[in-house]
């Protein structure tokens, strides 16, 4: 699995570098305009970081679609690797590349902002809360991508053609998202207990939704791994 991650990251190296350089150059330009643009510069820096995240998230989705629809699939699916290894490596690679872009974007924002926002946050937030935010960030990436990868793989298996498969995956994603939201709400109603995350603010987490998300992730991860290993036809 380590080797899969290594080659995935190597393959996306230019994309990651390109996005990071764009963010750095964009922020350096904004730094020259801080005095004249006032609040506009950090706002634009935020947009720049957000845009960079969208691009890297799309690149993370292509991690899977390249293998499902292009000739590169012959390289991956003839390796003696289990579906779980393939799936886990894809997710870890995505987390690493999204985190790199996020760290670069946030660092540049802090430099532009001269650390004002960061200081304000650190004064309010305790260390365990910061860890919670980081874990939630990783969890959001992993669970969202797992859901999307599942839809892509089901679309590929059910609808063989490239265009039809991609459109089909989107429709499956749309329909399953509705079903998932409905079930999540039902779980929250079934287990309405709340866990308080933050000692000062009213930040809470619903137990039912949390259990539902974890169970859904487990099922989708194993199902996608199984489908990749046993059902995908090239």
């Amino acid at each position: 699995m380590f080797h899969l991650i290594k080659y995935e990251l190597r393959g996306k190296l230019l994309t990651i570098l390109g996005i990071c350089l764009t963010v750095i150059i964009g922020n350096l330009f904004l730094m020259t305009k801080v005095d004249s643009w006032q609040i506009g510069a950090p706002v634009l820096s935020g947009f720049l970081g957000g845009g960079a995240l969208v691009v890297i998230c799309i690149a993370s989705l292509t991690l899977m679609s390249d293998y499902l629809y292009d000739d590169q699939g012959y390289l991956l699916f003839t390796l003696p690797q289990s579906g779980v290894s393939i799936m886990a490596s894809r997710l870890i690679t995505a987390v690493i590349q999204i985190s790199i872009v996020m760290i670069v974007s946030m660092s540049m924002f802090c430099l532009l902002d001269q650390g004002r926002l960061l200081n304000a946050i650190l004064q309010q937030v305790e260390i365990h809360e910061l860890l919670y935010f980081i874990l939630m960030h990783l969890w959001t990436i992993v669970s969202t991508l797992t859901f999307m990868y599942f839809c892509m793989v089901v679309g590929r298996i059910a609808l063989k053609g490239k265009k039809v498969g991609k459109v089909g995956s989107f429709i499956i994603f749309f329909l399953l998202s509705i079903a998932r939201t409905g079930l999540s709400v039902a779980s929250a109603n079934l287990f309405p207990q709340m866990v308080q995350i933050h000692s000062v603010t009213t930040m809470t987490m619903n137990v039912g939704s949390m259990i539902f998300d974890i169970v859904t992730f487990g099922i989708l991860f194993m199902a996608t791994s199984y489908l990749l290993e046993h059902k995908v036809d090239l």
């Binding site: 080659y7 393959g11 000739d71 590169q72 699939g73 390289l75």
Partner: peptide, 8 residues
């Protein structure tokens, strides 16, 4: 019978 190696 395909060009399956990474282009990079």
């Amino acid at each position: 019978d395909t060009e399956y190696l990474f282009k990079w």
